[in-house]
Structures are given as C-alpha cells and as structure tokens.
Design a protein around this nucleic acid. Structure first.
Lengths: 130, 130
DNA sequence: CGTTCTGCTTACGTAAACGTCACCCTTGGT
DNA sequence: ACCAAGGGTGACGTTTACGTAAGCAGAACG
C-alpha cells in the first residue's frame, strides 16, 4: 500500500471481493486503477467508487445503472455535462426515495405478519397446555 | 375472470409481466395457480404472492430468497414450522431495516452531491455572465 | 371446415455477473 | 540460478431470470 494506493489483494480483503471482480469492474469501466508496469494500483477514487458499486448492487441496481450513477458522482465539469449529470442524479434520487418508501411499507407489512405469527405461537402453547 | 380467479393474460396486464414469467415462477414454485383442464387460473393468493415477488425483486432479492419469504407469508401451521418461519421472518425484517438505513444514507449523500452540483451550476452561470 | 386466437409444453438461446482454468511474466527469497 | 508467489491476460464455464421459437390442443368465428 504505497502512499495512497492499494494493491488488488488489499482491495479484495478490504471490500471482500475477488480479484476477478475488480478486473471485471475495470473492464466495464466502473473502476480505473492506475498501472505500475502491469500491476493495478487502486486509488482513493477507486475505493470510493467500489463502495458505491457494492452499495448499488445491494439495492438491485445493475452495473450499467451504477456506472451512470458513478460518472455523476464525479460530475464531469463541462457545463453541459454537469447539467446532464444533475438531471440524471435527480431522477435517481427520486427513484431511491420511492424505493425507500416501498421498503418502509414492506417492513410494516412484515412486522404485522410477525405480530400475527407471535399471537399464533402463544395460542398454540395455550392450546397445547389445555 | 371467473369468480375470484384470473387468466394468464389478465395477470400479465395487471402486473405488467409476460406469460413466460408467470409460467417460470410457477415452475420455481413461487406461484401455484389451479388448473382448469390445461389452463392456469390464478387466485387471490397468487396475486398477493406475485406482488411480493415483484417487490422483492426491486430490492435485489433473488427468486430463491423470495421463495423463502413467501412461504413464510402464509405461515405453515405445524407449530414447529411456524416457529421456524417466525425466525426466518425476523431475520429478513432485520435485513430489510438495515437496508432501509443504508438506503437513507445513500439518499442523504446523493442529496449533498446534488446541492454541490447546483452550486457549481450557479457558479458557472455567473462566471459565464461576467 | 379451415383458420385464427389463447394457451400449453419442450427446448434451445441470451444477457449479466462473475468463477475457473490455462498459461505467461516478474520479483523476492535461498 | 531456481522457483514459488503474486499478478496479468484471454477464454470458456456457470448461474439466474427470463426470451424466443416450434409444435400441439381446444375454442371461436366466418
């Protein structure tokens, strides 16, 4: 781990992924490690991006969707690019908020289900004891 | 749509899925439509399950994970089965709550990012006007 | 009676996201 | 000088979640 960069192994251990995964993400332009000769050196930027990638995956986003989100996280400077990124980001934000609401609803339903289950369990114990 | 059941077409239009998808879900035992001769008739139970399936997918659950969640939604009666389902459901609930928290964090970060972008855009306009 | 829908089954095809394998460097120890 | 580690590059294999195509059955319509 020279300076601010990490080797592929260090990345794998830190984020619990395989080398293959990191190379794959690079091939998909999700990561852009610098090269020291042949070897990859992952920068702070790569680490931040990987964190976002893994998070995105947990929420069911495809790698392609994630790639767009990422590009938007380092907001291309070219005035028009920035505006476009801003647009995209807004949409994603709305999508995520909708997802959160739906998730909250799902949680509430599951909680009701659990309470019902708890009641059933108590009833069965009483019934068995009688 | 006789009585309480729906044909495959009606299901497709209602939930915006293809027939193939419904047959596939049946083959994976996620749905269990009754048969009228050859034809499938989807019941209220199937509709409820499909709703949960589609929701689960949006949150990045695999069909296999969803299948377990589903079985737990109609809580097998056999005292021990119920207890096991209850366990599983509790775990899933915790998982979902964690996901919601992470999602909220992601939303907050994206919002900060957007505010930064908005400031940049204003700056660029000012710079261009000067 | 022939055709046109719907739907069913079987089976092969496909895209995404890696896993796995074979083979080739280079570099640090002994 | 030797060789095992660690890293790299194809390239093919695998799993998930369906798509697509081929062919058959029963209803419905002119």
């Amino acid at each position: 781990m020279t300076d601010e960069t990490m080797t592929i192994r260090e990345m794998c251990e830190t984020f619990d992924v395989t080398p293959r995964t990191l190379r794959f993400y690079e091939s998909k332009e999700l990561l852009g490690p610098i090269r020291q000769g042949q070897k990859r050196l992952f920068t702070r930027r790569d680490r931040a991006r990987l964190k976002l990638i893994l998070r995105g995956k947990r929420f069911g986003f495809s790698l392609e969707e994630i790639r767009q989100l990422l590009d938007l996280y380092d907001m291309g400077r070219s005035k028009e690019q920035l505006a476009k990124s801003y647009e995209l980001a807004s949409k994603h934000l709305a999508e995520m908020e909708a997802k959160r609401d739906e998730l909250n609803q799902a949680i509430a339903e599951l909680q009701r289900q659990l309470e019902w289950g708890a009641r059933e369990l108590r009833n069965q114990e009483n019934g068995a004891a009688a």
